[in-house]
Simulated assay, not measured.
Amino acid sequence: MDTMLEGWTEPEQAVAREAFDRAYSRAVDQLVATVRSRAEELSSADSVWQLHDFLSIERHTIEGRFDFRLDGILFVFASLVKESLLQIDELAGLDAEKLAKIVAMSRF
């Protein structure tokens, strides 16, 4: 078995993937709403460049945050729970130890 997948059953992997995709979709939806709002306020070249800079930062943040590798996914889930992009109950199906770790890490 691939060491990256050790400790993860196929059903857990499916739960993790679905939760991850759901949180990603929420993050993108939030970004789109923010961009729409900011775009309505564009009034100069400077405001366009500020929007560009904002988007560059957000792209870097989202690409860094959303890394689906099972060896680090508990940390990702804890961060997403802390940021309200994911709820613990959306991770139902993971074993109790994994859920406990996510809950504990999300408190810091």
Rank of each mutant, 00 (worst) to 15 (best):
Asp89Phe: 05
Asp21Ser: 11
Phe68Gly: 05
Ile57Arg: 14
Leu80Gly: 04
Arg17Ala: 09
Thr3Asn: 09
Lys98Arg: 14
Ala45Asp: 06
Ala45Cys: 01
Gln30Pro: 00
Glu83His: 07
Trp49Ala: 11
Gly93Asn: 06
Ala78Met: 03
Ser47Met: 00
Leu91Val: 02
Leu74Met: 10
Asp53Phe: 01
Glu58Pro: 00
Ile62Leu: 15
Phe66Cys: 01
Glu18Met: 04
Ile57Ala: 15
Val48Trp: 02
Asp2Ser: 13
Trp49Val: 12
Arg22Ala: 12
Thr9Ala: 07
Ser79Trp: 02
Phe75Glu: 14
Asp21Gly: 03
Leu80Val: 04
Val81Tyr: 04
Ala45His: 11
Asp29Leu: 11
Met4Trp: 09
Met4Arg: 15
Arg22His: 10
Lys101Arg: 13
Leu51Ser: 06
Leu80Ala: 06
Ser56His: 11
Arg69Trp: 13
Phe77Trp: 05
Asp95Gln: 09
Phe77His: 09
Ala19Phe: 03
Phe77Pro: 06
Glu10Lys: 13
Ser43Met: 04
Ala33Glu: 15
Trp8Pro: 03
Leu5Ile: 12
Val48Leu: 10
Ala92Ile: 05
Glu58Leu: 00
Ala78Asn: 05
Gln50Ser: 12
Lys82Asn: 14
Asp71Glu: 14
Ser84Glu: 15
Thr3Gln: 07
Leu42Asp: 09
Ala45Ile: 09
Ala14Ile: 11
Ala45Phe: 12
Gly7Asn: 10
Phe77Asp: 07
Arg36Asp: 13
Leu99Trp: 01
Ser44Ile: 05
Ser56Ala: 14
Asp29Glu: 15
Met1Gly: 13
His52Ile: 10
Ile73Met: 04
Glu58Asn: 04
Ala39Gln: 08
Phe68Lys: 07
Ser43Val: 09
Thr61Ala: 15
Arg38Trp: 02
Glu63Ala: 14
Ile88Asp: 01
Ser37Gln: 13
Asp71Tyr: 11
Gly64Asn: 15
Arg26Gln: 12
Ala104Tyr: 06
Met105Lys: 13
Arg36Trp: 03
Lys101Phe: 10
Ser44Arg: 11
Gly72Leu: 07
Ala39Ser: 12
Arg107Phe: 00
Thr61Lys: 15
Phe75Cys: 10
Leu85Lys: 03
Val81Ser: 06
Leu70Met: 06
Asp95Pro: 08
Gly7Trp: 03
Pro11Met: 07
Ser84Val: 03
Gln50Gly: 10
Gly93Pro: 06
Glu40Trp: 02
Phe54Ser: 01
Thr61Phe: 10
Glu18Ser: 09
Glu18Pro: 00
Ser106Tyr: 08
Arg107Ser: 10
Ser25Leu: 08
Asp29Lys: 14
Gln30Asn: 15
Asp95Glu: 12
Thr34Trp: 05
Ser84Arg: 15
Gly64Ile: 05
Tyr24Asn: 06
Val15Pro: 03
Ser47Asn: 02
Val15Cys: 01
Met105Glu: 14
Val81Asp: 05
Arg65Phe: 04
Asp21Phe: 05
Asp67Glu: 12
Ala33Asn: 11
Thr61Val: 13
Val76Tyr: 05
Ser44Met: 06
Leu5Ser: 13
Arg69Gln: 15
Ile62Ser: 04
Asp95Phe: 01
Ile57Lys: 13
His60Ser: 14
Gln13Lys: 11
Ile57Gly: 05
Lys101Val: 08
Phe20Asp: 00
Asp21Ile: 04
Ala96His: 09
Val15Ile: 11
Asp89Val: 04
Gln13Tyr: 02
Val32Lys: 13
Ala23Asn: 02
Ala14His: 11
Leu31Met: 02
Ala27Leu: 04
Val15Ser: 06
